[in-house]
Design a protein around this nucleic acid. Sequence first.
DNA 1: GATCGGTTTGCATAATGTGCAATGATTGTT
DNA 2: AACAATCATTGCACATTATGCAAACCGATC
Lengths: 262, 262
Amino acid sequence: MISESSDRSRGLVQSVERAIALLEAVSEGPPEGEPVALLAQRCNLNRATAWRLLATLEANGLVHVDPTTHRYSIGLTVARLASASSVVGLTRRAYAVLERLSKRTNETADLAVPQRLSLTYVAEVAPPSVLSANWLGRHVPLHATSSGKALLAWLPEVELLPVLEQPLTRYTATTITSKSALREELDATRRRGYGTCRGELEETLYGVSAPLLDQRDRPFAVVSIWGPRARVPESRFPELGLLAQEAAEEIRAAVPWGGYHP
Amino acid sequence: MISESSDRSRGLVQSVERAIALLEAVSEGPPEGEPVALLAQRCNLNRATAWRLLATLEANGLVHVDPTTHRYSIGLTVARLASASSVVGLTRRAYAVLERLSKRTNETADLAVPQRLSLTYVAEVAPPSVLSANWLGRHVPLHATSSGKALLAWLPEVELLPVLEQPLTRYTATTITSKSALREELDATRRRGYGTCRGELEETLYGVSAPLLDQRDRPFAVVSIWGPRARVPESRFPELGLLAQEAAEEIRAAVPWGGYHP
DNA sequence: GATCGGTTTGCATAATGTGCAATGATTGTT
DNA sequence: AACAATCATTGCACATTATGCAAACCGATC
């Protein structure tokens, strides 16, 4: 067989990678589950191989297989493992606040946490009428979003530097691509108290974000409110920015240990 | 090497099992994470092996490794995968209701979902004063708990039979261990509208439970209220039973699709 | 600056995961 | 109702792949 394995060179374990790929595939499927053959195909795996990997995952509760339909869905163990992540405690407390925020502003409210050199959205509440894109799990560039800028603005210099070293990719006409302009923007953000975005990632995407700071004043999460430019023009920024700040403070206060271990 | 592998006989994949064991070990550790050596020891693995398995998990975001301390904690991907589980949507909606329930009764309220031939607790709210055992993720026997009996009472006959075939283990003096007695109890439970427990698993554990039924009247989750016998005597059962029923109905109504795919 | 605990990497070995092919089981079709 | 087709499951032989050992390499701490 063809053993490409750019993985192997880095000393990664093939069967575990394949098992994870299956887990992802299962999670992308419908709640009633997907059959082995389909999952195997999606991951470019032999059916027998996929079956054994899934059997292993099933034996440990990571996936659930319906005994009659033989369809695989995500198992309870994943939820239990996730509950060990401090993010989960954070999101649980955040949801009540985000729901209120979304209802009050009639826009989408969400919570993101830093990961590597980007942010990941971990909680999101969209107003009922709006069919919004699901940003959960998505990574976004830090220099082209209100949440990213809210994070950077309160990041200590040492951690800010590596981000500024990276190329600042242009996404739209308004994207900030020069290091000095970004520094100015971050200063303004800090003075203002919240980050803003004027279609810097996608033309029509406008919004504001406020950071959650831990005891040492390091940001560990960001609350955002956003919507299409037509509904969230710059004139609403001061109002929404204040609401985001209040929400951030409220969520932070509800977190017992007052922080988040990555 | 000694390759025991009762796994292998069932066609399971060793490295994946080991990776999962590591994942479990990581989840049991503190939020700031644990070093490789400790995790390896806990899972009886060679340090190098554990390192490569963890590296694979890390590359896929299932674990997070702090670049400075080299400590491993649960990664965001797990939370994302978990969010694909319908249980998560269920628990998110349940928490608000459980919190109210716990506040009002001053006892512990929780939610469990069926898994295999047992129940798993997936959400729990304890009154602030009480230092309660954490039941999250725990499996409980169906014949010796109020939640188990609430599930069984509304289960269709075909699914009930395999459970009754299993030996009914005795835990305390009040545990129901005969098949006929259990059938009677289940009839009574159905008439009553909620299940009860009089110290049948642990002497001092008293409580009530009400099921959440889907469109086809199949139970897919159970709400429980419980506490020590001294505070939750039988005389409170009618009052608490009604509250549990109301809470169950409220949670069920908040679930969009009105059910739960295991 | 040396010693210790830890992580990380290389390498040889065979244990282990894999693909193929054959067998049941189940579903849909005429 | 019988057939066909698709899919899940199991056995087996092969060599790819994961593993353990040992050595290198950091980063602490004294």
